[in-house]
C-alpha cells in the first residue's frame, strides 16, 4: 500500500490512478444496478409523499456530493497554500466542475420534487437556497480558474477564494436559516420528518455509495487530464525556449 506522500508524486499518481480507475468504474456500475433496483422495486412508496420519494435516491446523494467536493477543494486548498504541492492544485481544479454539477443536480431534482410536494418548482426553502448559494460560489471559483493563465498562480489565488468561501458557508447557512424562519409560511412540508425506514435506507445508502464511487472516478479522470495539461504546457514552453535559442530548431518545430 503506497503512502500518501508517495501518491502525491504526479508520476506515481498517474500510475496508481490508472490501476484504480477500472475497479472504481466497475464497482460503481454494480452498485448503481443494485441501488436503482432497490430504489424502484424494493423500496416502498412513502405513505406521505407517495412515489415521489423515489427522487430522494438521486437528490440526497447529489446534495451530499455537492458538499463533499467543496470540502475536498478546501482540503486541497490548504495543501496547495501550506505545502505548495502541485497535485493539491490539480485535485482542487478538477473538483470544481464536478462539485458544481452535483449541486446543480441536487437543485434540479429538488425543483422537480418540489412541484408535486409543495405545488411550486422553486420555493425559497432554507436548504434549497443554501445549495443555490453553494452553486454560485462554485461558479465564481470556476470563473477565477478560467481567468488566470499561469497554473501555479491560479492555484494559489483560487485556494484563497476557496478558503474564504469555506469560512463563509456556515455564516451563509445561518443567515439563510434565519431569513427563512422569518419569512416561511407555516404550511410548508418539511423534509426532515420521522426517521427513515430501513427498506428505504439501504437503497439510499447503496445509491449514495454508487454516486460517490462514480464521482471519484470522474475526479481521478479529470485530475489525470489536468496533470497532462500541465505537462503539455511545460513541454510547449521548453520547446519555445529551445527554438528561441537555436533558430535552426524552429524548422523542426514548424514541420
Amino acid at each position: 500500500m503506497p503512502s500518501i506522500t508517495a501518491l502525491a508524486n504526479p508520476t506515481r499518481f498517474m500510475a496508481y490512478s490508472a490501476k484504480l480507475l477500472p475497479w472504481l468504474g466497475g464497482a460503481a456500475a454494480i452498485l448503481f444496478a443494485i441501488g436503482f433496483y432497490g430504489a424502484f422495486f424494493a423500496a416502498p412508496a412513502d405513505y406521505q409523499q407517495g412515489q415521489t420519494i423515489r427522487i430522494m435516491y438521486v437528490h440526497v446523494p447529489a446534495a451530499w456530493l455537492g458538499m463533499f467536493f467543496y470540502t475536498l477543494m478546501t482540503a486541497s486548498a490548504v495543501g496547495a497554500l501550506v505545502w505548495r504541492h502541485p497535485l493539491a492544485e490539480v485535485a482542487q481544479k478538477a473538483a470544481a466542475p464536478i462539485g458544481a454539477a452535483f449541486t446543480l443536480v441536487c437543485l434540479l431534482t429538488g425543483a422537480l420534487w418540489g412541484r408535486p410536494m409543495w405545488g411550486a418548482y422553486w420555493v425559497w426553502d432554507a436548504r434549497l437556497t443554501s445549495m443555490l448559494v453553494l452553486l454560485l460560489i462554485y461558479l465564481a471559483i470556476m470563473a477565477l480558474w478560467r481567468t488566470i493563465d499561469e497554473p501555479t498562480q491560479a492555484g494559489r489565488v483560487v485556494s484563497i477564494l476557496t478558503l474564504v468561501g469555506f469560512v463563509n458557508i456556515p455564516i451563509i447557512k445561518f443567515s439563510v436559516d434565519w431569513w427563512n424562519t422569518l419569512h416561511q409560511p407555516a404550511s410548508v412540508f418539511r423534509m426532515d420528518g420521522p426517521t427513515i425506514h430501513p427498506s428505504m435506507l439501504w437503497p439510499l445508502l447503496v445509491c449514495a455509495l454508487a454516486f460517490s464511487l462514480f464521482a471519484i472516478w470522474l475526479h481521478l479522470m479529470a485530475m489525470r487530464t489536468e496533470v497532462m495539461r500541465r505537462r503539455i504546457r511545460t513541454l510547449t514552453i521548453l520547446a519555445a525556449d529551445r527554438a528561441d535559442r537555436a533558430p535552426s530548431a524552429l524548422e523542426g518545430l514548424a514541420r
Binding site: 427522487i55 438521486v58 452535483f102 443536480v105 422537480l112 408535486p116
Partner: peptide, 17 residues
Amino acid sequence: QHAAFILGSYGAAVLVI
C-alpha cells in the same frame, strides 16, 4: 400520477452528470 416528475428528475441527473 407524478411519474413525469420522477422520470424528469432522473433524466435531469443523467443529462447533467
